[in-house]
Design a binder for these strands. Sequence first.
DNA 1: ACGTATGAATCATACGTATGAAGTCAAGGG
DNA 2: CCCTTGACTTCATACGTATGATTCATACGT
Lengths: 338, 338
Amino acid sequence: MISRIGSSRVTSIDVAQRAGVSQSTVSLVLSGKGEGRVAAATADAVRTAATELGYHPNAAARTLKSGLSHTVGLVVPDITNPVFGLVLRGAQQAATAAGYTVILVDVARGDGEESVRALRAAFVDGLLVFAIAPPAAALGPGGPPVVLMDMPATDLPSVTLDLKGGVHAAMEHLLGLGHRRIAHLRADVPTPTFVARANAWARALLDAGIDPADDLIVGSLFSHTAARVAGRDLLQRSPRPTAVLCDDDVLAAGLLLAARDLGLTVPGDVSVVGFDDMPLAEMVTPPLTTVAFDVPLFGTRAFEVLLAHIRGDADAPRSTWLATRLVIRESTAPPPTS
Amino acid sequence: MISRIGSSRVTSIDVAQRAGVSQSTVSLVLSGKGEGRVAAATADAVRTAATELGYHPNAAARTLKSGLSHTVGLVVPDITNPVFGLVLRGAQQAATAAGYTVILVDVARGDGEESVRALRAAFVDGLLVFAIAPPAAALGPGGPPVVLMDMPATDLPSVTLDLKGGVHAAMEHLLGLGHRRIAHLRADVPTPTFVARANAWARALLDAGIDPADDLIVGSLFSHTAARVAGRDLLQRSPRPTAVLCDDDVLAAGLLLAARDLGLTVPGDVSVVGFDDMPLAEMVTPPLTTVAFDVPLFGTRAFEVLLAHIRGDADAPRSTWLATRLVIRESTAPPPTS
DNA sequence: ACGTATGAATCATACGTATGAAGTCAAGGG
DNA sequence: CCCTTGACTTCATACGTATGATTCATACGT
């Protein structure tokens, strides 16, 4: 098979010559817009010639002419986190089906401007931005459509999780088990997502007649080592919380280590609830009770919304929610009796 | 800030008009090839005009004209695996520095052909293929440069791990602790990487005068659940192995669960060694002794090699090795005395 | 038999950039 | 005073595709 990725040497002109037609006809046939304009026999001849020569349209020329790259960018804060991998997968699946390609940009190194430059070079038709403030340069009038993920906004279309529902279910579960001192191990990142989680936690406590006091709260950077340190702090407070809602499974994993450090058992001495239901949640000891959502669907849904905006659909959705559910495993139990 | 990603409405002609020069001059100045051809004052005027208008060259036009997209593709088997995320990050860093963009393609869904089509559409200048057989359509005469990662090959440039060294160190560690029945929990994937790991394991045993018998071997699909099942099988054999070398940290995590299922302690009853030193390795109980390598550097190195081939450097490397080292944590200890 | 409607295919051009060839102008040598 | 040299600039064109405008031939109605 003689073919090239990228600079395909065989052009529509070659196909035209072989099929004995003009380049225009080739373009019409292969772009599908020849319906009713090109005779069936001619169309067949073109398609045959194209196949025989292994023709693939030149993306750069097509993009230049049409102004559409059929490429969208997905901006994530940390591709190391498997959640984003699954989001990408979901988005990629939907994109492939629609003839689009997804370019992933990881802004972990914080070099947002550089990333934007990369995207500009890649000529994206639209942008999926996950859980971070969209790069300023990506917005502005005349910019490409942007869909925010996991980050509510009033001025831009967004796809978010039903966080209130998720936290609510988790808190109801813990309250139902008899817990009262339910702490919150929160990510020290002031993004709307985590603010929403914090608010939902506080509201659930208030609704149960419990004061969401400061000594029930501890912040941590976004790593299991930081969470381990923060967790030791939290678990040494007196009175010790009997349950901890964590903003993320990775943080929950850190908390498990902290409990182990202090000789505490989970869920015997303290119950732990995570967030996101990463694969990790099943691998740690004990397996985590966690707030789950369909991660790939998140990506799929977001792409669909973006595509609607790219196409300029009048009824393209502005704000969409994705349901969450509580997965109960072995890290939660009634509080110690003493 | 009025700017667009993608279809930047302001073209080099606009800049030319504003600076009072021709489009050619703009191109010469901004592409850096005007050295000695364009007067300093003119160049300054062009650059000023470009900045004022917020000009960004149209990637599609540039690609069409030059035949270079300044984009490379990274093909990975499973972006959910954090290792690949780190590889991407390393590659992306090197790529950005060189003015390149990395497009990630995840072939997890097995739809390799579809992926290749996506890459073709994206017009890549080169391909980084991680640990899987390169898509046939990507090769063939006249194809773009390909660098294989973690997959030795004679006919294509490759960057691989010093597996023999890594396995050797792990086995020496276990043998030094007094283990004799050292089993191998292997990934049921016949890629060269895993074949190499298996061979290195067998060689180490033979060198120690131990028969790498079949009952020391168990295969598993690439997930912690599958490894858990396979691990239970392995750990119920008689005589039970006192140590297990796992092809991957995820498999090792599954084995830990299997041990727990059977009421065995790690490392008391059985020692476990993983591979890759994922973040997960520190989070499980007990933390895993594992064969580690500098993952981002792996990506960086691979991109550098690819770039050399794209540029057609005569001395572009064919085969490169990356060092590995053993990280000793808490999952290994001397075998039980009984 | 002639004008026209219709289907089929082609023409010509534009997208925005890069670049070899050609042009301009002033200074300097013969 | 003309011609060369050199330092700048610009011209013209090509990359490969998409598409509105156009041509062409055929069939139809009167």
